[in-house]
């Protein structure tokens, strides 16, 4: 397929994905906004006012970057896993498989759809945070690059989950038992420096710690971990997940008999 036509196919997939999550905005865009608004009210305003400073900022300011990142992570993941699995379930994936669209275009299209939802929810949550806290950006480049790259990582992870999934239960296992614990233990609500030494080092094995801290650096200018390790880890995950997802697509795992 010629490059120009590949771009048409890519645009088609992305537009279809964006159309899907905006059509069902009550299920996709509204719930994270409500959930995060509750976090702001309860943890930020009510509890946070008694906690005082953390990392040199008041508690509300400290948790805002983490909550934005949590929304981006969960939404980019769940968009791709649910969308790709439902195309498998409804067999509308066959529309793509019978077309000359190359597998890498299919993968990138779904990933960009996940990134679009992750960033849309991120923007909504950021807008909500302005009602509770001032937002000053320390480094625009770091902030935007970290959030964009993180959304890619979790969109790719969602795609791999969807390829292996054979039932709707399978698409909720990873978010419930892996993603949520890692996110909550990823330094959203606390600084790693508060932890005992053992748990500090255990936390460093959690990749979400790096993403949350990298994003927090972009907004507040403080981080518990090295920015270089953060970029290195995110790029490594992108490389591994992209190669794995493309391999599965080329093999036809779960989609061709």
């Amino acid at each position: 397929m010629e490059i120009q036509k590949q771009f048409v196919a890519l645009e088609t997939i992305v537009v279809k994905e964006v159309r899907r999550f905006t059509r069902i905005w009550i299920q996709t865009l509204l719930p994270p906004a409500i959930t995060v608004a509750l976090y702001f009210v309860i943890f930020g305003n009510l509890v946070g006012s008694r906690i005082g400073e953390m990392g040199g900022f008041d508690y509300m300011q400290f948790i805002v970057p983490g909550l934005i990142m949590m929304s981006v992570i969960t939404n980019s993941y769940s968009n791709v896993v649910s969308s790709f699995f439902s195309t498998k379930f409804q067999r509308s994936i066959e529309e793509l498989l019978v077309s000359p669209t190359p597998n890498h275009v299919i993968l990138i299209g779904y990933v960009l759809g996940g990134v679009a939802r992750g960033l849309s929810v991120g923007l909504i949550v950021t807008g909500l945070s302005l009602f509770f806290s001032d937002l000053t950006i320390h480094n625009w480049l770091v902030m935007t690059s970290i959030v964009f790259l993180t959304a890619i990582v979790f969109s790719l992870a969602g795609f791999i989950n969807a390829v292996f999934a054979t039932s709707f239960d399978d698409i909720s296992i990873v978010p419930t038992f892996v993603l949520t614990p890692l996110t909550y233990l990823g330094g959203i609500f606390y600084s790693l420096k508060m932890l005992p030494e053992f748990w500090y080092y255990v936390s460093l094995a959690n990749p979400i710690v790096y993403m949350v801290n990298g994003f927090r650096y972009g907004i507040l200018g403080v981080t518990d971990v090295s920015l270089w390790i953060t970029y290195g880890m995110i790029l490594m995950f992108i490389g591994v997940f992209y190669s794995w997802a493309l391999y599965l697509l080329n093999r036809g795992s779960g989609i061709r008999s």
């Binding site: 036509k5 159309r19 529309e95």
Partner: peptide
Amino acid sequence: NQFEKVADIVRTQAGYFG
């Protein structure tokens, strides 16, 4: 896709063919 509109389904398929 049972939730897509008729014309969108046909146009989307055309897009997959570039």
